[in-house]
């Protein structure tokens, strides 16, 4: 039995000035699954996440969130209100608050929450998930390594208690060993917390390793869609993204 889609993008178009980033893209994300968006540089993967988060405006199309049995149209919702709808975004390049401490960064993730006890419990959760962050809790975020910053960015997003986690290139610029740790954590968050995750990745091999389904974007359009196993077995995908 297939779960109902929790997030639908319908014919989404996005441009940066005259440059078209997404030319009518439709994507479905079902509750509890990991969906990966693959594609080369400039294919529009990040733009898709930025559109969901309200960081770039839609020229056309709809982004519909299924929430409490009702459809909520996210088009035109300002970026700072998206997190209220249970969507957290781990941006490309981590974007942690450099001069804030690790702890403060995590507290910022819970910016809209007022439940002190719940926040403390979630903090402990994040520290259990990433013990390195607990060790460095009072350090400024800019002093962390790339991998640790990635953990912090994920932890910050989790602190909003999202239903959907958007992750943009979590493996970018990170030591190969840590990439495995990060993706193990992604799988763990998905399995144990039943979190729905959309992950944009250039490293198709690791992404297809954890994802249930995937989409391949090429110059702003969906070129391929299917289960992770199908995509991993697809000749074109193997040639273009998995190194033969």
């Amino acid at each position: 039995m297939e779960a109902a889609p929790i997030l639908r993008l319908e014919n989404v178009r996005v441009s940066y000035g005259a440059v078209r980033a997404l030319c009518g893209v439709s994507v479905e994300v079902r509750e509890g699954e990991i969906v990966t968006l693959l594609g080369s540089n400039g294919a529009g993967k990040s733009s898709l996440l930025r559109a969901i988060s309200g960081l770039v405006p839609l020229l056309e199309g709809r982004i519909v969130l299924r929430r409490d049995g009702q459809d909520v149209d996210l088009r035109g919702v300002p970026a700072h209100q998206i997190v209220r709808h249970g969507i957290a975004h781990v941006p490309e390049g981590r974007r942690v608050f450099a001069s804030l401490s690790v702890l403060e960064n995590l507290e910022m993730g819970a910016f809209l929450r007022r439940d002190g006890a719940g926040i403390r419990a979630d903090l402990d959760d994040v520290f259990t998930l990433f013990p390195r962050l607990a060790e460095r809790r009072s350090q400024r975020a800019e002093t962390l390594s790339g991998g640790e910053q990635q953990m912090l960015a994920i932890g910050r997003a989790l602190m909003s208690r999202p239903r959907i986690l958007l992750m943009d290139e979590p493996s970018l610029g990170i030591a190969p060993l840590l990439v495995k740790t990060i993706f193990d954590t992604i799988r763990e968050i998905n399995v144990e917390r039943r979190m729905t995750i959309v992950v944009v990745e250039q490293n198709a091999r690791v992404a297809l390793g954890v994802a249930h389904r995937g989409y391949v974007l090429e110059v702003g359009e969906i070129a391929l869609a299917g289960s992770a196993a199908d995509l991993a077995g697809n000749d074109e995908v193997r040639k273009a993204y998995l190194g033969g």
């Binding site: 700072h80 957290a88 974007r95 608050f97 450099a98 804030l100 910016f111």
Partner: peptide, 20 residues
């Protein structure tokens, strides 16, 4: 704290729910 976050990174601040 929100002010420091905005000074650090406006987009990331928006993503955690801060009205810049």
């Amino acid at each position: 704290r929100a002010m420091r976050a905005v000074a650090n990174d406006k987009a990331a601040a928006q993503l955690v729910g801060i009205s810049v």
